[in-house]
Design a protein around this nucleic acid. Structure first.
Lengths: 197, 197
DNA sequence: CCTACCGATCGGTAGG
DNA sequence: CCTACCGATCGGTAGG
């Protein structure tokens, strides 16, 4: 089918663009660079996508969707606050390591989105972070966590995770779920009340 | 003196460029944008700087120098591992919050540096991170910290700090030294061996 | 610090 | 998917 071929080509464009944007940054990447990677002329890309920004939008919103879906899977089962936070961290790391390049683009190139996409993006990020703040709040209410500033804590937590694409090596000794559990352990231990003090 | 005026003007160019690069990113910022902020023509900037990249270099290496100097001040006094790590974290946060825009440029635009500056930059970063790894190692040798992967731990720690320019508000309720101490406390507690387990 | 300009490159379109 | 091309903009230079 022609339609299937078109979709496959579009996916290919998105993949090469992801690698390119990750390496050079969105603004420094040209449609001619992208065309070179695909082995076609720059003008030909426009029969598959409307604009350079459309490609960025697709990458950013696809990742946003994946992050949300992985959280929803956790929320359907009822855990306690610590378990929820731990599973959310592991899931978040899992999404990142499944596509480190797309994640890097997602985390650092979103500011090149134009309105109204930029606002939509920021709203989604806010909602996502709020889930994490809820887990921290629950942990505090359950008197398992110390009293902390939830906003600050979640910002610190997610920042430390979101940098993973910068150093993650799929062939390295640390496996995705190991990374997730290590970070979860470090933070949860840092947040937990001590039995004796 | 004419020389002093020239130096002052160059400083001004660097400051406006810092704000511009922070807001739009280095690649998306044009010399005409910068000229507009300074109230002069784009061509006039070149009587003060050799190139657009020279400005980026100055920002990046000035910040690198500040990070190093703040660490050296700590190392001259002999503390134990935990104290060193805590003071290093607080000092690092202090440097960032003193100039969040320059820090943001430093952390996310360095990849636009050309050789040999790029290699020099990466070497400095490696040396800086190694100091932190040493503190973690010392804490492990002193049996104060649990056995952890130093590389991973320091990457996680510094990532969480380096994102601060993204949300820090000088008029907010959290003061720089508070931020530093909160992060230090969270991580050190996360790393410390528990008395009872 | 300005005017006047350079060659190169950009994102994107028309028409096939 | 290509050729041929557009207007706009880029970093930077010459000469004053």
């Amino acid at each position: 089918m022609l339609v299937e071929k078109k979709i496959a080509r579009k996916k290919q464009i998105e993949q090469q663009a992801t690698a390119l944007f990750h390496q050079k940054g969105y603004a420094a990447s040209s449609m001619r660079d992208l065309a070179g990677l695909l082995g076609i002329e720059a003008a030909s890309i426009y029969s598959h996508v409307k604009s350079k920004e459309e490609i960025l939008q697709r990458i950013c919103f696809r990742m946003a969707k994946e992050f949300f879906e992985s959280l929803e899977a956790i929320e359907q089962e009822a855990y306690n606050a610590v378990e929820k936070l731990e599973k959310a961290i592991v899931a978040h790391v899992e999404v990142i390591t499944k596509d480190p390049s797309a994640s890097a683009v997602f985390f650092s190139e979103w500011r090149h989105l134009s309105e109204p996409h930029l606002s939509e993006f920021l709203e989604m990020r806010e909602r996502y972070e709020d889930k994490f703040r809820q887990y921290v709040r629950e942990g505090m209410q359950d008197e398992v966590f110390e009293t902390v500033d939830e906003r600050f804590t979640v910002l610190t937590l997610l920042s430390s995770i979101n940098y993973i694409p910068g150093w993650f090596n799929p062939d390295g000794k640390l496996q995705p779920d190991e990374i997730g559990h290590k970070i979860a352990r470090l933070f949860i231990k840092g947040l937990e009340k001590r039995i004796s003090n």
